[in-house]
Design a protein around this nucleic acid. Sequence first.
DNA 1: GGTTGACTTCGAGCGCGCTCGAAGTCGGAG
DNA 2: CTCCGACTTCGAGCGCGCTCGAAGTCAACC
Lengths: 142, 142
Amino acid sequence: MSTDTRTSAGSGADAGTASLSIAEAADRLGLSTHALRYYETEGLLVGAPARTPAGRRRYDEQDLRWIVLVQRLRATGMPVREVREYARLCREGAGNEQQRLALLRAHRERVLAQLAEVSGHLGAVTAKIELYEGTVGTVGDR
Amino acid sequence: MSTDTRTSAGSGADAGTASLSIAEAADRLGLSTHALRYYETEGLLVGAPARTPAGRRRYDEQDLRWIVLVQRLRATGMPVREVREYARLCREGAGNEQQRLALLRAHRERVLAQLAEVSGHLGAVTAKIELYEGTVGTVGDR
DNA sequence: GGTTGACTTCGAGCGCGCTCGAAGTCGGAG
DNA sequence: CTCCGACTTCGAGCGCGCTCGAAGTCAACC
């Protein structure tokens, strides 16, 4: 309630480039405003969002897209420290594409390995479930 | 070096039932002795391991099998508190098989959902990688 | 001009799952 | 008998990733 009207006011407020307040951005990304500021101070963003003359953050599409990537990396288990490293590489501009690539590839390998491991364990749990389904009358399991 | 000889000494030390010291069990399970005791005090074990007259823990095959299950549950992301709950149900004996089943099924559903989510995010990361591979243009490639 | 309330910074606190260290006990080898 | 080292319990500490609250500022609306 009340986060209404004046949505993308600020400066331009016209076609194309939206520019959201932190609350709007948080809402759209499914994060808290606290988390968004945390990401920023922790150096997870490739570039800090713009500020209004009064010092308030404005998130544009580019900011949002980057944060979505950060969320994906985080959601796949990349530690904050490594996201920071990746962000740093991107911030430094061209010339380190190989490093970025290596970082992402290493991450992908880890995630694949973990997916396989979890799947394996899940298989065992499923077997256990089926055992119960078949045995829901027999006591001696454990 | 020195966790040698006297491996499964203790009492019997014969065929079939081994009965390991905490260090041996930890070693075999890939856990620390600290973690093993922690699991026990936190109620994650369905039954406490036996003790020697001197009060030292002896892990038998049943203990080990249970702990392997605990590890699988943990490795698939089940919170300690929920493992404790499951252990409690098993400890209470017969009559609650449906509850155990429900717990395991719910866990499986969560894990499947998370596997799907992670896979999705990983797909996006892979796309990013391929983008770099294309951009970097035939550099190392292989 | 006053009120409102979303914003700002800062630092403390928290939930999780162990991990670590201290201090003491005890069984077995020499 | 003595020593060694693996065991015991206990409680504190830690790394991670936020989360939360306090205190203050400032733009906009009435």
